[in-house]
Amino acid sequence: MTIAFSPCPNDTFVFHAWVHGRIAGAPELSVTYADIDVTNGLATQDDGPEVLKVSYAALPWLLDKYALIPCGGALGRGCGPLVLTRDGSSDPAYLSGKRIAVPSDLSTAYLLFRLWAARHVPGGVGEIVVMPFDQIMSAVRDGDIDAGLVIHEARFTYPAYGLTMLADMGAWWELDTGLPIPLGAIVARRDLDRTAITDWVRASVRYAWAHPEESRSYVISHAQEMDPQVADAHIKLYVNEFTEDLREDGMLAVRALLHRAAEEGLVPRVDDSLLG
């Protein structure tokens, strides 16, 4: 079975057991490791992988071919994307007309930013530049862009780049809706057995929690130069009870995000029945 997910610690931690044959009855995986911008694009291709990690914000364009798997993804509280600058500004008006980097034009981070900016940035932002998430902080630090929307481990490492947080998209979303933040989803092609795939993903999550040391070398090898302590903090934040099961709160959050974005004309409307 073909699968694509990021090399970030939360994804490698979640899928370690399945990738390494620890899940009884699960098929062998052929893995593509790729940034979320790449996996969002792969999902739109006719020959895309059978299972993928994508942004929740990308679902309106994918649900005709892919079904949402209610586990394995990234959704939670206190884990939202951050807007970073190098000048210490805390005023959203600073972003008016500015050049801002985002990790993917189909990312949940960018969708949350667009919803937030519509309310908080007078006159709107200027140019949006899509770049790999791990290049954004350097670009802000070096003055190549005015601000950056960051995800993943940047929440822990941005002070080392001399950057400051202007706004936390997750904190805004939680305050505004009372719901957790839907970031990354696991999807599977609709011609596959969704129940079986759900069982295999959930079993892989549970195995990871039960045997955390088994995945450590795999996680660190794909995290490249990330400090092991940062990788551990990353996993602790992004792999939580919603990773095991979206539950009612998680599905409410997903529907709220997609419905609100559709009302603002940012994404096509989604039939709730397609979300499962």
Rank of each mutant, 00 (worst) to 15 (best):
A74N: 14
K98D: 03
Y66R: 06
T32Y: 07
Y94Q: 06
R99T: 14
R22I: 06
P49G: 07
L52T: 08
V102E: 02
N40Y: 03
L106H: 01
V51N: 04
L68C: 09
G72A: 13
C71T: 14
H16Y: 15
H20W: 04
P60A: 06
L112C: 02
D87C: 08
K98H: 09
G97H: 11
T39E: 06
V54P: 05
T108H: 00
E50A: 12
S96A: 14
Y56T: 11
S107D: 03
P70I: 05
C79E: 11
A17R: 05
V38H: 11
D87V: 13
D46E: 14
A58F: 04
G72S: 10
Y33R: 10
Y94S: 12
D105V: 08
A74Q: 14
D47E: 13
D37E: 13
V19N: 00
A24H: 13
R22T: 08
V83M: 10
L52W: 07
A17S: 15
R77I: 08
D46I: 00
L112V: 03
V54F: 07
L115A: 02
Q45N: 11
L62T: 03
A57M: 03
A26C: 14
A17E: 13
H16W: 14
A93P: 11
L68E: 02
D105W: 07
T32P: 07
L95C: 10
L75E: 09
V38D: 04
V38W: 05
Y56K: 10
A109C: 06
G73D: 10
P92V: 08
A24N: 12
T32R: 14
D91A: 12
L63V: 07
L29C: 08
P27L: 11
S55N: 15
G21C: 12
R86C: 04
G76V: 02
W18R: 02
V102A: 14
G21D: 11
C79N: 12
A17G: 14
L111H: 02
A24V: 10
I36A: 01
N40Q: 12
A34W: 04
K98N: 09
G72N: 10
P103I: 01
D91G: 06
G41L: 04
D64T: 09
Y110I: 00
P49A: 11
S55Y: 11
E50R: 07
Y56D: 03
A67E: 02
A74M: 15
D87Q: 07
G25D: 11
P81A: 15
N40R: 04
